[in-house]
């Protein structure tokens, strides 16, 4: 039994492992950081810690990025350390739900997903495919 948190990026549904998620925030003012990668939008102050914000939509190569009321930041940490906290901007958070690991199938993804190429797997729920993003790989990409 595992639990995932699903979210929207350009009308498609993706998900993170719930255990890695620390916070979900509204997209507020982000302080821009000079000379950083384009998708790194800057940093925010989260309870006195400086947390970088990466736009997952940009990382996935989405071209028409529009922020709406639903736009959210999912703060995750892949190793539980404060220095590893990072927020991802997504088009909207959907839901948290439990699933059996056996239900996770290999991801079949057609088309361009930009810098995000590795997925833990996909599941089908209510006629929708949910692709679970491999956080470790995303983090590696950002650290490159």
């Amino acid at each position: 039994m595992t639990s995932i948190i699903s979210f929207l990026i350009d009308h498609e549904v993706f998900a993170f492992d719930t255990l890695k998620v620390r916070n979900i925030l509204e997209l507020d003012k982000v302080t821009w950081v000079p000379n950083a990668k384009e998708y790194l939008k800057g940093v925010i102050n989260l309870h006195g810690n400086i947390i970088p914000i990466a736009d997952l939509r940009m990382m996935m190569g989405i071209e028409n990025i529009e922020n709406s009321q639903d736009t959210a930041v999912i703060v995750v940490s892949d190793d539980d350390k404060t220095e590893s906290l990072i927020g991802f901007v997504v088009d909207g958070v959907k839901e948290v739900f439990d699933l059996e690991e056996a239900d996770i199938k290999e991801s079949v993804i057609n088309g361009n997903t930009g810098l995000i190429n590795t997925f833990t797997g996909s599941i089908r729920k209510n006629d929708e495919f949910i692709h679970i993003i491999d956080l470790v790989e995303v983090v590696k990409e950002i650290e490159k």
């Binding site: 003012k29 302080t31 950081v33 000079p34 000379n35 950083a36 790194l40 940093v43 925010i44 102050n45 006195g48 810690n49 400086i50 947390i51 970088p52 990466a54 350390k81 404060t82 220095e83 590893s84 906290l85 990072i86 983090v139 950002i142 650290e143």
Partner: peptide, 23 residues
Amino acid sequence: PMGRFLKKQENISGASIMGDGTI
């Protein structure tokens, strides 16, 4: 500290939180 992901950003040595919460 700026955390693990901005370590490569050499021009910036860290960040400071101002009285009004901005950085």
